[in-house]
Write a protein that binds this DNA or RNA. Structure first.
Lengths: 348, 348
DNA sequence: CTGTTAGCGCCTTCAG
DNA sequence: CTGAAGGCGCTAACAG
């Protein structure tokens, strides 16, 4: 609508230059420019030079979207989508980092979708994301709406679910069993003599499954959880500290607080330290995640180690094995149980 | 390569269904399907229903890429690119989270590029990312290669640089001055009587600028930094702890360690605590970032507070003001200095 | 080596 | 309300 003052060299287009613009500027046909860009060895050096000059003069940038679906192998967009609840939790941030590194290395770009912890958000996110035709998609968890599952199946692309374990994955799966985490923690802590358990947890469905596992295993030994404090996502040190304070106020006799993340546990630890409560002597605290974190707090924190980096890397690798199948290499495994590890530090 | 057992309803295509496939299935022309999807009110309910059935039967999913450049307003891709060094640093993770929230809310999707701390990585990343024709791009820092700058200008899209301050931004800018952070820390710490300074820093160009600011301001008062320990990126609690140990070993008399991130500071704190060194009595430790972090460590950590969430949110808002200009609303500000705040806790 | 033709999937314009 | 043309930017296929 407004007047276009023509600059000297750069065209005043609001829209950026196209292949045809470059061709015109170089005095060749569009296809020649295309070749100069993609298969320079098929173009005479002289022409090539003129085209390269024209490219710079026009400020041309390739438009990957318009390359069409039949380009390269299988019309690849070189895009991989990664859907996860949040990136504020360092365990997920680690996963993004690892996945991004592996994928970028192979020329893929990352479409990131942060879905929060609500299913309907995931649903619309997956749908919009799929409309970009990513070559693959990595999801968090195994609980998806029916619509999401249908969209994923209809997309005919590799799907990797992560951070969980199920008997019926959509396609591939990289994760571990949260119930089992609960069982293991229960068994070990009972073995060490703890009886008065408290749970400090974020409102996260997978944390809930760990807590269920914990409570179920405890119940089998006739032990019940003395108190549970639920804090909203995203977890923070502040919430951990406050939650710990609440638990101690209501139940001064609890012996062990099982937290749904290291962030919460670290906050709880701070509260204990500020009260002069010996940890783990008087009050034991167990975290979850252990991003190289618990080993470097003081006093040391016990935790369930699960490696976000590893899950991200393995998920990306599984994806890449499908996307870029190498001749001799083995096919991608459908399911990888990354497991977890109980880390006990200090004398907890 | 393997045989395709034709299912009853879903076609065995490797490629997903197109508009034309749906049209065929519904017995209408492609354009009618297009309308049914985009302007349902222009299609008779009966036809609409048949088309919707066909959509589900064929498993059709919209292909946003092929919508062409002249669709919607200005051929928007509804994609915003976010380029940053890493997401392993929680300060950047916060930024991603905040930016993603704001952008998703307005129907934009996030193309994430993790460039590390090397310029050449940023350059190729920016170029590939621009080939997706994002509607806007958010960058970290103000130091870019000449090629990157040219590509950004040629893209004719809103650009927001973040996490830094300069007199000549490419377009918009949301950040603060790192030199000034150094000056402020120096001034305050001198004022409190500290003289034997040590620096524990990651190999990050912006941290380097803060350190230069610190050293310059100290030098003006005739004070020089006793020791500097540089650790590789990404920073970790472990590196912080080890760095602190090295500094103390080489210079037992240092009074204050200025760290380039809270992560390092927290690690240093752990080392001090494990040695029984009173903090800040015997050794003061200063962090950077303060993601609601320092307030909840024990002993409390002093830090320079810069809010990743705020920077992400403001950057996204600046972007959106350009992308979705509202009639009455004021235009996007070119430069936003988010500033920083010295947080002193305990008796540091 | 370079140009012509044709078509990707979708949508705009203009006719029915 | 529905359809037939035409074109977006790019690239395979075939000609020269």
């Amino acid at each position: 609508m407004d007047a276009q003052k023509p600059d000297d060299d750069t065209p005043p287009h609001i829209t950026s230059a196209t292949l045809t613009d470059v061709a015109r500027a170089a005095g060749v046909s569009p296809i020649t420019v295309s070749r100069a860009l993609n298969q320079p060895q098929l173009v005479r050096p002289g022409t090539l030079a003129r085209i390269q000059a024209a490219v710079r003069a026009t400020g041309y940038a390739r438009n990957a979207a318009m390359a069409g679906p039949r380009t390269a192998a299988q019309g690849a967009t070189k895009l991989v989508a990664l859907i996860l609840p949040t990136v504020a939790n360092p365990i997920f941030a680690d996963m993004v980092q690892a996945a991004s590194d592996k994928l970028t290395e192979r020329g893929y770009q990352l479409l990131l979708g942060l879905a929060g912890y609500e299913l309907w958000r995931e649903e619309i996110l997956v749908e919009t994301v799929l409309s970009r035709r990513p070559d693959g998609i990595i999801l968090t968890g195994t609980l998806h709406s029916d619509n999401t599952r249908k969209h994923l199946r209809d997309a005919h692309i590799p799907v990797v679910e992560t951070w969980d374990m199920t008997a019926s994955p959509i396609d591939m799966l990289v994760g571990f069993s949260h119930e089992e985490v609960g069982h293991t923690v229960a068994a070990r802590m009972l073995e060490k003599g703890y009886r008065r358990f408290a749970i400090l947890t974020a409102a996260d469905p997978r944390a809930a499954r760990r807590n269920q596992g914990l409570q179920a295993a405890l119940a089998r030994q006739g032990v019940s959880v003395a108190a549970t404090d639920v804090v909203p996502v995203p977890a923070s040190l502040r919430l951990g500290r406050e939650g710990c304070a609440r638990l101690l106020a209501a139940h001064p006799d609890i012996e062990l607080i099982v937290c749904s993340s290291d962030t919460l546990a670290q906050g709880a630890l701070t509260e204990a330290a500020s009260r002069g409560l010996p940890v783990p002597g008087q009050l034991a605290i167990m975290g979850f995640g252990d991003l190289n974190f618990a080993a470097h707090t003081f006093p040391p924190l016990s935790s369930v180690r699960v490696d976000g980096n590893a899950i991200g890397a393995l998920a990306a690798q599984a994806m890449l094995r499908r996307l870029l199948p190498e001749p001799g290499a083995p096919a991608a495994r459908k399911v990888i149980d990354t497991g977890f590890e109980l880390i006990e530090r200090g004398s907890t």
